[in-house]
Design a protein around this nucleic acid. Structure first.
Lengths: 233, 233
DNA sequence: ACTGTTGCGGTCATATTGGTCACGGCCGAC
DNA sequence: GTCGGCCGTGACCAATATGACCGCAACAGT
């Protein structure tokens, strides 16, 4: 299992997106694009055909919004057919019950569109590590082994952060902003979190640049206009 | 979802073990024992009956070795029936393909028999946290939110002691931290225990990673922020 | 209406401090 | 005696505060 490439089926109705996923796959070592299906029934047929041909699919990149069936339905039918093929969900839908259903359907990763190549690669590499971890031993010898394997599947490996920003501070700023109902200025963030104005601004600017925050100037007071930031919902 | 207890069905053919699991459940807040099934078909009937009664089961503690069906088969049939009930597998079997199948069947945790109450409680508490995290927001607003929810489900809190850490020193650090009323920095641990800052940090970081410690940066002074640690109660 | 003044936040360079890493030494085990 | 595991050392890296300076808008006086 570990000594051959992971065969991936792309299930995606939009041709452009499907091609993009396939192109992404080619850039990763250890994965091979084994085909594309444009709707749910085609996906199920392709999976069955691959089994019949003795080259079963290892992993499905499944778009949740398909023309005929919902991605979750396709997943359920796969399970009902006894397939243990792993599934990574790709979706623009962020509804709660979809996530819950995904967990129950045995979906190993959940990618929200739009995503960057870095995010895509991270999720797939995590999955590859998970397989390697399982393959490296013939049996789970202890609870710890199982926990580690599961963890390698689901522990987020933090995405590259620009220099000068720390994990903890960034989290604190985000957490603070999420709880605000009105836009806040960098001074307010400084006071509330006990950090300096300069530091507060660095994080706010970064979040605004990456699109997580709305930024707008605030007039009416003496002095240079003050930028105020609001969490984008 | 978050404001009521989690209804749990115990599926276990050995009466003694089933009773033990139920007793364990009673000791945990937020969980309620909703019934016991002695084999696979009984489990499926109980699940359907609970749905019909308007009190669906939230979680199944499923033994894998049942007299009639394998636990994985029961899980697959649940999925085929459209149930999104979560499943925690309990098994003495450690074979690889069982673990792989469990992932595909949407099994959220995997407990290996025999286990202690502490291990049992840890897995269930993790699951409870996962539910709370999902319930705390109406929709997943970002990839990070989804990642965090998945991580809270499967991050091991039971990491083996990594290399470079000794039993004795670890115990000393824990003992010291337990007696502190305010968070301490690695420098303070260094001074008090007479070990180097690097060593102190190794242990503090490990404990923080495993969830035994809370870690937060301390601002207000020039220089890189200092992490302070507090024993989590 | 124009202009200088004032006040406040943005910007930048620098000092400061703790985190991080690689290496080496010591001690116990086999 | 050698090897491996644990810890300390010191150099380097990273993240923050500080303070001086700049820019912009309001305000007041002419």
């Amino acid at each position: 299992m570990a000594d051959r490439d992971i065969r991936v089926l792309v299930v995606e109705d939009e041709a452009i997106a499907a091609e993009a996923h396939a192109a992404y796959l080619d850039r990763l070592t250890g994965f091979v694009h084994a085909g594309t299906a444009g709707d749910g029934h085609a996906a199920l047929r392709a999976l069955a055909a691959a089994v019949a041909a003795g080259q079963p699919i290892d992993l499905v990149l499944m778009d949740m919004t398909l023309p005929d069936l919902h991605g979750l339905d396709v997943s359920r039918r796969m399970r009902a057919a006894g397939l243990t093929t792993d599934i990574i969900a790709i979706t623009a839908v962020r509804e709660l019950h979809i996530v819950r259903g995904a967990v129950a359907a045995g979906i190993v990763q959940y990618l929200i569109k739009p995503f960057t190549y870095a995010t895509f690669a991270q999720k797939l590499v995590q999955y590859r590590d998970f397989r390697l971890q399982l393959a490296s031993q013939s049996a789970m010898t202890s609870q710890t082994d199982v926990d580690l394997a599961f963890a390698s599947l689901r522990t987020p490996t933090d995405l590259p952060r620009p220099k000068g920003l720390s994990e903890g501070t960034l989290g604190a700023v985000i957490e603070f902003l999420k709880h605000q109902t009105v836009p806040v200025s960098s001074s307010e963030v400084m006071d509330q979190l006990g950090i300096s104005r300069v530091t507060a601004r660095r994080y706010l600017e970064h979040l605004a640049d990456t699109g997580s925050l709305d930024r707008s100037p605030r007039y009416g007071t003496p002095g240079r206009p003050e930028n105020e930031y609001a969490w984008r919902r």
